[in-house]
């Protein structure tokens, strides 16, 4: 459904993504694991097209020169040069790192801004669905986005992305800075969303352990390159992965 072939991204002369090819099939949850600066966010930005916007802004401000190579295929079409807003319309929606909520808007408004691409009926339906998946938001409806805890913010961020009617949902570090309890809740709800909405989800995360149980397939990034990939079982039984990402020797 969503594939990247030989994706390369350079910031000036520094290579951020090195020949990465990944693939996410329909109704699959794919994990992307790697340490800080392994290239997870760059990969997510490249898939969702935000990289094009970053490149444009950098060019305008006279900042870093960003070079993109390779192809991103979505529903057997090359979308490498498609604008990010059109990619979102096609169904690739990114829920960004650090959530980036609209801090001065209420939770409800955040969700409704997310529903920009949805029809009225879809928006209404999805809004109900979000409240059902995250009942905690029900009480916080009128609270401003900036006054929420990290976990609540993440729920709103995922809900907001869902409002855009994604076919592929990209979650960039959804568990960043959350308590283990909150992490477990979010992961469970992510799985539930995937099942209910029949969408594909790509999760980029530093710590593989909490996410691993729900992924169907995973890639491990190191310094911008995919050093390992495999189904959950394959990676689980790989001694290198065990020691590096699960802390089991």
């Amino acid at each position: 459904m969503l594939e990247a072939h030989d994706l390369m991204v350079f910031y000036e002369n520094m290579i951020a993504l090195n020949n990465i090819s990944i693939k996410c099939d329909e109704s699959q949850i794919v994990g992307i694991f790697g340490a800080n600066s392994a290239g997870k966010s760059t990969l997510m930005y490249s898939l969702s097209g935000i990289m094009l916007d970053i490149r444009k802004k950098e060019l305008m401000a006279g900042g870093e020169r960003i070079t993109l190579r390779g192809e991103v295929i979505f529903q057997s079409q090359n979308i490498m040069n498609l604008k990010p807003s059109l990619r979102a319309k096609a169904g690739i929606v990114l829920c960004p790192e650090r959530r980036r909520l609209f801090k001065e808007s209420s939770v409800l408004e955040n969700l409704r801004i997310g529903g920009y691409l949805a029809t009225k009926a879809q928006a209404k339906h999805t809004l109900e669905y979000v409240m059902e998946v995250y009942p905690a938001l029900q009480k916080l409806k009128n609270r401003l986005g900036g006054f929420l805890s990290g976990g609540e913010q993440q729920m709103v961020a995922i809900g907001r992305a869902l409002m855009a009617q994604p076919k592929v949902l990209l979650l960039d570090e959804p568990l960043l800075g959350l308590s283990p309890l909150m992490q477990a809740t979010l992961i469970k709800s992510t799985k539930a969303i995937q099942k209910e909405k029949k969408i594909s989800i790509i999760i980029a995360e530093q710590y593989a352990r909490p996410v691993f149980p729900i992924v169907d397939y995973a890639y491990i990034l190191e310094n911008g390159a995919a050093v390992m990939e495999g189904t959950r079982e394959e990676l689980m039984n790989n001694p290198d992965v065990k020691s590096a990402y699960f802390g089991v020797s």
């Binding site: 970053i54 979102a88 980036r100 408004e109």
Partner: peptide
């Protein structure tokens, strides 16, 4: 609402399909 979203965080709005140039 889309205008408001863009005013607060243009890139986050872009991720939701709100075309910033338009």
């Amino acid at each position: 609402l889309a205008l408001q979203g863009m005013a607060q965080d243009e890139r986050a709005a872009l991720m939701l399909g709100i075309d910033s140039d338009f």
